[in-house]
Amino acid sequence: MARRWTNDLTLSDVTPKQAYLNRRQLIGAAGAMSLIGGAAAAATDETLEPNTFEEITSYNNFYEFGTGKTDPADHAHQLTIAPWSIRIDGLVDTPGDYAADDIIAQMDIEERIYRLRCVEAWSMVIPWQGFELADLLALAGPKPEARFVEFQTLLRPEEMPGQKFPILDWPYIEGLRIDEAMHPLTIMATGIYDEPMPKQNGAPMRLVVPWKYGFKSIKSIVRITLTDTQPRTTWNKAAAAEYGFYANVNPNVSHPRWRQDTERRVGGGLFSSRIDTLMFNGYDEVAGLYDGMDLEQNF
């Protein structure tokens, strides 16, 4: 099980001494082919260093706690995360409630240092701990007819003050095609920097799909449903022209609000330059999932 995808980039790689090694590994992670050109190489130089724990935990979009970037850090402490279970249902052999602790105990927890690209054109590099989603789905045994996976965030307005306002159609729903869900890059993250997942980042367990805009990586998941129809996802319902179902990071498809060809890496301060955004956020190994698809139409 697990470790199907080798990311040999670990925290020790970020020390300056290891800069050379670091770069080689990133090129591996980002897909060597795309990085031969000078511009792309320059872009990867920017991607070396993970953001600090403080940056990752103080600048979040988690509208369940408010729409401001610091609202999640200010309000998420109200959330109780124990006990926690995830209902896995729909087109599976063994539907049921799976306790978060039991899931984590069974899984092979690995470290994945991923770029995270928000649709708002900012980005971070985050050292996640977690396991492959495919391994969690395997516990419930997806039936062959399952074509999509729908995810749902906790709905608990008493502890999630943002849910008291109908700014989005709560609870938050996201979805993936089954092949995207089974891809070894797709993980359920359970921690950051070897700390249990902070509440503002989606405790106890959240999805991370590094080649898609951040809003796809749904937080604090309570339900996973395998279906044969494409899920109606929250942001897509709110503004279909702005947020597609696929939401793959794509510098060539502009968004009505934010240009997507460049991004700003959080942590660079007031004078930080924009860097080029890479196709699939640099994770070219997923390109095969979309062979023959018009990614401008299916944005």
Binding site: K69, G267, G269
Partner: peptide, 15 residues
């Protein structure tokens, strides 16, 4: 405030 890091970790948008 923005220069000195007192407007959060992404001071450009905050300012």
């Amino acid at each position: 405030l923005a220069v000195s890091g007192q407007m959060g970790v992404e001071p450009i948008n905050a300012l």
